[in-house]
Amino acid sequence: MSVATHESGSPAQTTEPVLELTGIGKHFGAVQALAGVDFRVHPGEVVALVGDNGAGKSTLVKIMSGVYQADSGRMRVEGREVHVHSPSAAQSLGIATVFQDLALCDNLDVVGNLFLGSELGSNAWMDEVAMEKESWRLLRELGAKIPTVRIPVASLSGGQRQTVAIARSLVGSPKVVMLDEPTAALGVAQTAEVLNLVERLREQNLGVVLISHNMADVQAVADRIVVLRLGRNEAEFRTVDVTTEQLVAAITGASDNVVAERHARRVPPATETGEVEA
């Protein structure tokens, strides 16, 4: 399996990775979902995690967010080796996740959802005023169009629910934010808003992990693209160096497909730097 590395010289690479996984393996029964997967994200960097269905993206995300535990491999946060036993452990390490199903409680209002599990207040007593004020601040920061924070989220639209879920990931001042298919259910304008939001997270020097099927979205905001295929690292690209065709080839694993051949004929070999057989 060929691993292409195109990664030297990115400004983010000079810093220590905020989150780094090496040799991650995970199996469910007889199915090896992940085998020897390496992944890292630096502060102020947007890393896209792409792959076909069943490539192991969601499993990797769930390991990073503490929902699953890896069978093998190591995980480091800011250079320190950690064991993430639970979602709350991941949160306290500064790893926030926006799941594809958003994981919102429909019966709670926006404030209740935003601060769920990390309510403000003294001891057990919640400070609703502080939470509501902070909710408006977070939502304004995202340019969110939410009519009121005191209605159950069941009554919000898909884009509004996505916004609430993303705003919620920012509540605990995370270091890394993982977004699992954030634009999958959104319209054109709302997708653009979410992409803007991803850039704002990067400006705040957060590490952002973006899981997406949408190549246009990935190429629009990601600094680096990690391709998983059948539970292994397939390839890794800097976004500026890669074409959609190369990405598709890596995702589908068909390096000799028609698209790639046509591409190879058109591009002079000298610019194909760093294509190394591993």
């Binding site: 639970s86 799941f99 599990g117 007593w125």
Partner: peptide, 25 residues
């Protein structure tokens, strides 16, 4: 209505998985 325990009780009743993922015991 006013304590985190009560809020978490409603959350678990509304969506257990969401509650678990947000770190609620």
């Amino acid at each position: 209505r006013k304590t985190t325990w009560g809020r978490h009780l409603y959350a678990v009743g509304g969506n257990v998985e969401a509650a678990r993922r947000s770190g609620i015991n």
